[in-house]
Design a protein around this nucleic acid. Sequence first.
DNA 1: GCCGTTTTCGGCCCGACTGTTTTCAGTCG
Length: 576
Amino acid sequence: MEIKNVQIANIFNRMADILEFKGENSFKINAYRKAARVIQDLTEDIETLAKEGRLRDIPGVGEGIAKKIDEYIKTGRITRYEEIKTEFPESLIDLSDIVGLGPKTLRLIYRELGIKNLLELQRAIENGSLANLPQMGEKKVENIKQGLKLFQASRERILLGFALPEVLGLISELQKLPEITNISPAGSLRRLKETVGDIDILVAGKDGRKIIEHFVHLPSVREILAAGETKASIITADGMQVDLRVVEENSFGAALQYFTGSKAHNIKLREMAKKKGLKLNEYGVFMGEEKIAGKNEEEVYEALNLPWIPPEIREDSGEIEAASNHNLPQLVQPDDILGDLHLHTNWSDGSCSIEEMAHHAKTLGYRYIAICDHSQSVKYAGGLTEDKLLRQIEEIARLNEKLSGTGFKPGIRILAGSEVDIKNDGSLDYPDWLLEKLDIVIGAIHTGFKHNVTERICRAMEHPLVKIIAHPTGRLISSREGYVIDLEKILEKASQTKTALEINSYYERLDLNDLNCKLASELGVKFVINTDAHHPQHLWMMKLGVGVARRAWLNKDSIINTQPLPERLPKFTINK
DNA sequence: GCCGTTTTCGGCCCGACTGTTTTCAGTCG
């Protein structure tokens, strides 16, 4: 459904690139970019909005852009785009993604040297013709050369689950320095976006030079890109670029706010500040010359008459308006999670015993877990035969005796479950008499990703024992697209059958993602946040899934594993 | 091209850095 949203957003972004190249009014260009971003983040189908004549309700969409959207939906094309697209070679506009090569320079090399594509740009660098242009010195050519290298490598963004532990490690190393009075990750990492580009760490402290000296000589640093008094950039042994910035203590909040972004959120805040006769920048909030806030984020927001806004929702997608109306959501927190309902063990393709998983879960403060190993037809993952599942149910009963809390020692409850494969006809991989012996049944697709997946999942959700659908879209971030599905249909069926959809926290999945969760939530769907852990060391990823939920504005009431288990098991109660 | 509790016209976030200049343009975040 959101396909048209993405297509239209892409066109507007491309139009902005072309208009920028043409040297059009920069505010017009920004208008296109803003519209593109808002449309991309929309949870509603833009086609529906168009049919209902509600396009103009989208912030950033006015008369001109609404007309173009209507045209695209009716005819599949936008005349204005087709016109300007033919004025210049596509391969030329592609070059605008090169860092260090802005629209002005691009226009210069096109006009003066006739450069139209990557290859010609490379040649111009090599034969020195680029360096001969006016305003073009040695350094600038070198910059473009570097940008070109990055562009060709088309540097991939880093998975959050990969970057987060690394950054927390760096931070705990840095905290040992007494000169550092405050420290925090910033940027998209702090907003818990599923992938991050550069990694930003912000520090408040006295002796910038010393702090940076310490930072660039940490053991995990492979290469130093820059090291000044207030800013340093390094490459870690894992190949991640990390920027450290040092600021004065009384500007830490303003700088943290600024470097956390998002850019769109910051722009809106600055507009607000301006309307109030204030000025907001990375040093503080100013009334004339006087600084009225900046030491911490709370007072920065307060100076603008706003409550503090959690970083995860700072995307200018309604959070500022909600804050103004004192209507911010009570976002679910990591501590709200009472159990993990999707764990694997060495009974199928996990690497540890049920008891080991339970022990680790207990150290995290969980009150319950569910063991959901694979079902019989998932051979490659060691799916359990019917007999083996029966034996596992007995083993879990035995462990529950052993691990149940006594007196002052709280225990942990292990639920017997299964991640049951949804077969090609939508039936389940175990017979009902066996499923009925389980505390919890999760349905999942593992084969036939292009084969009637929507119908299969919907049929599985109609089964009264299927309480959860695991990783509902099947995507792997930056490596697999996911099943071919009609997501909206699935969400509606989930809402109707009261089947919870999983937010799978495994770092490569994060499935459902933030936008899909937001959409699902609007349709009244319930969620469960699981790790799908195959090893105790995967359990920490719960915080990634909680991040997804927070980015989707979810509160704890819509997430079933924030609820305590009923006194008497066996059956996990989701009323279907 | 969008938008409006000062406006339907005249604004549109803000600062740092870099490189090439000699007071500033271009680019980035």
